Amino acid sequence: MRSSRVEELITIGALARASGLTASALRFYADCGLLTPAEVDAATGYRYYTPSQCERAVLIRRLRGIDLSLEAITEVLSAGPDRAERLLDAHVAELARRAKAAARVAAQVKRALGAGRGVAVPAAELARAIAQVGTAAASDDSALVLTGVLVEAEATALTLTATDRYRLSTRTVPLRDGGDEWSAVVAVAPLAALRPWLESIDEVVLTPRASGIALASGDTEHRCAGIEEPFPDYRAVLDGLAAVRTRVLVARAALLDLLETAADDSVVCAVDESGLALSGAVTATRLPAAVTGAPMRLAFRSTVLRPAVASAIGPDLMVDLAASDQPVVVRSATDGDLTTLVMPTSIPSTEDHDR
């Protein structure tokens, strides 16, 4: 007969049921010193444990479930709370890094095997491109295709382009691994709605679908509906731009502030060697600017020029002028990859102002 102390012990089978581990796993952990039985019957070899050892067994099962090595489990269980927390945080960070690397490799292999025509891009860069280009899309559906964004996948980059006929914005985002060439026009609203999600992830894969595109990261996939109309030939517009006669480098924030407070929707910009003068219906303000080339005077609708300035990034704008009736090219001086064309309007006459 076993002593009263032995009567308080539980068998390996009971511990297995209580902890969710198998008996063979418990024997393995006993043999490696991770969970030693409280008592082993010398005659039968039966292993007995105390009920309090069930908590340690459960911890071992959970730690093995997140791929912690036996050595690391021993270190975590023997450490104080602060050190155990640091060890676990480091392990989870490594798991996240490996998961991202695995997802990237899987995407590469799927593309190599022809499992998809997806292209991988940095998600945050794509979110910024959507914000910068999307404002140039039309807000009404009189020409449905102009309410969309043209998404073009090429050998090394993804290009986003939008235009409402008065503005045209185009921006490229580098691909991480290359991919097939394809294009699709997608509605701007659902694409813009994905920006918070894109800003929260590292990489996104875009794949053309029967109608529109899919954007995927891990197990999450979003669909953006397509627009089945031909997009305007914006490259012909860019290639057909007249030669630049005047280049202006101006502080973006100062110009934007003036446009936000413009007294009239029509503003006139006059540039010469002394800077840039911006006038509305009543007031005129001069901004410091570096001007290269001939003096020029142009008029714009502020509701057209303002979004082009607001969507640019960096502290400075580079503005290329060809003539008072030709598209103006607005670029971020620190990010020449973003290009926006703004159409000027006819210059209001003095008589118009006096009426």
Results as ranks from 00 to 15, higher is better:
residue 120 A to I: 13
residue 120 A to R: 13
residue 121 V to M: 03
residue 121 V to N: 04
residue 123 A to T: 01
residue 123 A to E: 03
residue 123 A to G: 00
residue 123 A to V: 02
residue 124 A to I: 09
residue 125 E to C: 11
residue 126 L to V: 08
residue 126 L to I: 05
residue 126 L to M: 10
residue 127 A to S: 07
residue 128 R to P: 06
residue 128 R to N: 11
residue 130 I to L: 02
residue 131 A to C: 07
residue 132 Q to P: 05
residue 132 Q to C: 08
residue 133 V to Q: 03
residue 134 G to Q: 04
residue 134 G to I: 01
residue 135 T to W: 01
residue 135 T to A: 09
residue 135 T to M: 07
residue 136 A to W: 04
residue 137 A to C: 11
residue 137 A to Y: 05
residue 138 A to I: 06
residue 139 S to R: 14
residue 139 S to D: 13
residue 140 D to G: 05
residue 140 D to S: 11
residue 140 D to T: 10
residue 140 D to I: 05
residue 141 D to P: 05
residue 143 A to D: 12
residue 143 A to P: 01
residue 144 L to R: 15
residue 144 L to T: 15
residue 145 V to A: 04
residue 145 V to S: 03
residue 145 V to M: 01
residue 145 V to D: 00
residue 146 L to F: 04
residue 147 T to H: 09
residue 148 G to N: 01
residue 149 V to T: 01
residue 149 V to L: 02
residue 150 L to S: 08
residue 150 L to K: 05
residue 150 L to H: 08
residue 151 V to S: 02
residue 151 V to D: 00
residue 152 E to L: 01
residue 153 A to F: 01
residue 153 A to T: 03
residue 154 E to T: 14
residue 155 A to Y: 07
residue 155 A to E: 14
residue 156 T to G: 10
residue 156 T to F: 10
residue 157 A to T: 11
residue 159 T to H: 00
residue 159 T to M: 03
residue 162 A to V: 07
residue 162 A to H: 00
residue 163 T to G: 07
residue 165 R to W: 12
residue 166 Y to E: 13
residue 167 R to C: 04
residue 168 L to H: 09
residue 168 L to E: 06
residue 169 S to K: 04
residue 169 S to R: 04
residue 171 R to H: 14
residue 172 T to I: 08
residue 173 V to Q: 00
residue 174 P to F: 09
residue 176 R to T: 15
residue 177 D to R: 09
residue 177 D to C: 09
residue 177 D to H: 13
residue 178 G to M: 03
residue 178 G to F: 01
residue 179 G to E: 01
residue 181 E to L: 10
residue 181 E to F: 05
residue 182 W to C: 06
residue 182 W to N: 06
residue 184 A to F: 04
residue 186 V to I: 14
residue 186 V to H: 10
residue 186 V to K: 09
residue 186 V to L: 13
residue 188 V to T: 15
residue 190 P to Q: 06
residue 193 A to F: 08
residue 193 A to T: 11
residue 193 A to M: 11
residue 194 L to H: 02
residue 194 L to R: 01
residue 197 W to A: 15
residue 197 W to R: 15
residue 200 S to G: 15
residue 201 I to A: 08
residue 201 I to D: 06
residue 202 D to A: 13
residue 204 V to P: 00
residue 205 V to H: 06
residue 207 T to G: 02
residue 207 T to Q: 04
residue 207 T to C: 06
residue 208 P to R: 00
residue 209 R to A: 14
residue 211 S to C: 10
residue 212 G to E: 09
residue 213 I to D: 05
residue 215 L to P: 04
residue 216 A to M: 12
residue 217 S to A: 15
residue 218 G to E: 08
residue 218 G to L: 07
residue 218 G to M: 09
residue 219 D to T: 12
residue 219 D to L: 10
residue 219 D to S: 13
residue 219 D to N: 12
residue 220 T to H: 10
residue 221 E to R: 15
residue 221 E to H: 05
residue 221 E to M: 09
residue 222 H to P: 10
residue 222 H to F: 15
residue 223 R to Q: 14
residue 223 R to G: 08
residue 224 C to F: 03
residue 224 C to T: 11
residue 225 A to Q: 08
residue 226 G to E: 12
residue 226 G to F: 12
residue 227 I to D: 06
residue 227 I to M: 10
residue 227 I to V: 15
residue 227 I to N: 05
residue 228 E to P: 11
residue 229 E to C: 09
residue 230 P to Y: 03
residue 230 P to T: 04
